[in-house]
Design a protein around this nucleic acid. Structure first.
Lengths: 230, 230
DNA sequence: AAGTGGTCTAGACCACAAA
DNA sequence: TTGTGGTCTAGACCACTTG
């Protein structure tokens, strides 16, 4: 076998062997040196190909343990987290924004838990609406760490907190969750939908190495659909 | 600057420069050769670091055009697509499964569109329920390409189509979408929830290079939450 | 202790897109 | 045309983890 030249060709060939069962689930595949010899290429090239497959969840690699085909593959998909304005403009729709409220307040327990601070019982609470073609698109309900985004220094009357944060605050990590919820009276009023309507919601916590920066719940108007690549 | 040794250290340093604005949005950053000289390392090491950042959406790279900091970063997040049994067992809950129906039928237009075949107006339609701790967890409503998964050859009475497919069928790509929907009478009955309840649903189309393999809608019982890494 | 993947190097050539 | 990233090589050393 001398065909594959690039790491992508080797990736493709490896994929084929996984799919055809030539490399069966749970079994160890030849090590990098062997494959490099087989494909007449440098070990680094094989490494690049197998690492790529491992990142997609199609192989499991361990030092000394070798490379294996997972018995129950857990494939990974990626989705893009754009700012809401981009999301709307990407659909060739007109973006609109309106700040509803911005004040210091005591957060509910579930939010406070995300901030891990029993001290600062007062957070900056920002509520805003994003519009697409003049119609409510997404309700932004955000709690900010007031030590990082100070009242008075930064205003969200024109530029949404969503956009300001993406452009100005570095973050090192966090978590994101998706779920469905029924519109309560408040959300129904703001999103101009029926009370009880099924809404898609995203909750996101963003941290830097030191502290939690913000927790946000984005509730989308009925019909919203989030797409990702497989 | 001689500190960073590994590509991860260079990545971290690059991140710092992006965050501090030393590398400002829209501006070109030094090319790989310059950075390699600055960090006293091989260009390949710089390449590894910058490529990693580009994959996360924190840099944009183009041949000849150089590397830039995006003005509006589109960060990427990944989530894992496990089989439903794993999802439930991962929560330390007992998994259960029941096949509801499995027959050839004419799909609705929206499903047929995913198969791009105006010919085969008959697809294999499989309906099943997944349970966690004995309670309905997820409703699987699946349409299969009967030329790939033949009636009679493969049965889903014990092993779910979800699991069988992951283990047996290679796929090259597809798309996945998330949304919220209100439980209709049928779904409410099967998931044992109120009609009209807000449910989280995933729709997934899976293809191989030649044809569409399957289209599935997974509707989760109320309270389901999908998490991803940021 | 030893095997395997992880990473780094120094150099080279190539592919693409901007000038 | 030319500059920049993309990739490959051959060799080396290291880190982890398993036996």
């Amino acid at each position: 076998m001398k065909r594959p030249a690039s790491w992508q060709a080797i990736r493709t060939e490896a994929l084929r062997r996984i799919h055809t069962g030539l490399w069966s689930p749970g079994a160890r595949i030849p090590d990098e040196a062997e494959l490099a010899a087989e494909f007449s290429c440098a070990r680094a090239t094989v490494n690049r190909a197998l690492r790529s497959l491992a990142e997609d969840g199609l192989l499991e690699r361990r030092r000394k343990g070798g490379t294996r085909v997972p018995t129950t593959p857990v494939r990974k998909a990626t989705f893009e987290i754009a700012i809401i304005r981009q999301d709307i403009e990407g659909r060739s729709q007109e973006y609109g924004y309106r700040l509803i409220d911005d004040r210091l307040a005591a957060p509910p327990a579930e939010v406070l838990a995300e901030f891990e601070t029993s001290r600062d019982v007062v957070l900056r609470h920002v509520t805003a609406l994003h519009f697409a073609e003049g119609r409510p698109f997404c309700l932004e309900d955000r709690w900010l760490n007031p030590q990082i985004v100070k009242m008075g220094e930064v205003e969200f009357g024109t530029l949404s907190a969503n956009e300001w944060l993406v452009r100005n605050i570095a973050y090192s990590g966090g978590k994101i969750g998706f779920h469905a919820l029924a519109a309560d009276r408040d959300a129904a009023g703001k999103l101009e939908c029926a009370e009880g309507a099924a809404l898609f919601a995203i909750e996101r916590t963003t941290r830097n190495p030191t502290a939690t920066i913000t927790f946000v719940r984005l509730t989308y108007a009925p019909g919203y659909r989030m797409e990702a690549k497989l």
